[in-house]
Amino acid sequence: MSANGHTELLTMQPFRQLTAIAVPLDRANVDTDQIIPKQFLKNVLRSGLGKGLFFDWRYLPDGDPNPEFVLNRPEYRGAGILLARENFGCGSSREHAPWALKDFGIQALIAPSFADIFYNNCLQNGMLPISLPGAEVDRLFQVVSAAPGTQLSINLEKQHVSTPHGETFAFELDAYQKQCLLEGWDSIALTLRHEDEIAAFEARG
């Protein structure tokens, strides 16, 4: 890493645009215990967690893939966008959840709402969680379920999601977080630029 200028801040892969298959997971309140069950938290690394993603839903008790679980359907192979229902990612703070999704290939999520810690953890990993009104998420579920394998396009700069038929849905995102994603900034490096202020705060005690 270079020590000068802005390059020291660039550690995350920037996120700008994404066109990818969207896989619909039609359940509300999906918790992080489902996204990545406990046995996969016994790792000291953050890589290779994709195999544990939705483990209890993806595999039958005998270890075979569950053919009924949507992520196992061949039409959705290679999906990069997860379409979900309200309060996605509730429960534990485990960052293993976004790590597992990312390792599996998911780079963006669309849902009516997300749990706070999960939402934040996604952003920390260069992943984009998009909140859209319930009716618009319903519409995307229709589009994607009617033609499994449909690709959706996300433009972060313009802040919209579009379908192949040209339907477009605008989303909101905190301006600062948008910039961090677009630039791929490392937030620790950003903070260390304020070291004097941190030291002054500590001195005030």
């Binding site: 703070s93 960052e95 810690i117 934040n120 990993n125 937030s187 620790i188 903070t191």
Partner: peptide, 13 residues
């Protein structure tokens, strides 16, 4: 509660 990236952030800053 925070995630692991934030744990790292707090440790460092």
């Amino acid at each position: 509660g925070i995630g692991t990236s934030e744990v790292e952030h707090v440790l460092a800053t």
